[in-house]
């Protein structure tokens, strides 16, 4: 068995493709459209809850001792429009729209997370 594991390209290719498929299903299948809320966390503490992200686009400025992020929500999407952090990863990250997804601004210890109505406790 070990010998086979060591020398079979095809076996490993199949294993990785299966893992890929599982992950892609995990991303696209469940909980679609079953959410409406998002949370903004700073340092792991709840900073604010965005109760409804399905309406028209709104903007909120999050200013903490770490810095300032402008978070935009609406049309079932959330994203960080601008940030005065150094790496801009949060701005470049783009829009999130599914429960469990999050945008993280590590320099500002900021997390914006979409929580599903049913899944916010189960998947984390």
């Amino acid at each position: 068995m070990l010998k086979v594991l060591r020398s079979s390209n095809i076996l490993w290719a199949i294993v990785f493709v299966i893992i890929l498929i599982i992950c892609i299903l995990w991303i696209y299948m469940p909980w679609k459209d079953s959410f409406a809320a998002a949370e903004i966390l700073v340092d792991g503490e709840l900073y604010m809850t965005l109760d409804d992200i399905s309406g028209a686009e709104k903007e909120i400025t999050v200013t903490t001792s770490y810095g300032t992020n402008v978070v935009v929500y609406g049309n079932n999407e959330v994203y960080v429009r601008s940030s005065d952090c150094k790496n801009q990863t949060c701005v470049n990250f783009g829009k999130i729209s599914k429960p469990g997804q999050s945008v993280i601004c590590a320099p500002h210890r900021l997390t914006v997370r979409i929580c599903g109505a049913k899944t916010s406790d189960t998947d984390i």
């Binding site: 893992i19 890929l20 992950c23 892609i24 995990w26 991303i27 966390l41 340092d43 792991g44 503490e45 469990g100 997804q101 999050s102 993280i104 590590a106 210890r109 900021l110 997390t111 997370r113 998947d123 984390i124």
Partner: peptide
């Protein structure tokens, strides 16, 4: 660890892919 919340784990499937 840095953000102090497990929210980043939601990115797991994307990052595995």
């Amino acid at each position: 660890v840095i953000t102090g919340s497990p929210a980043a784990a939601g990115l797991l499937p994307y990052l595995i892919v």
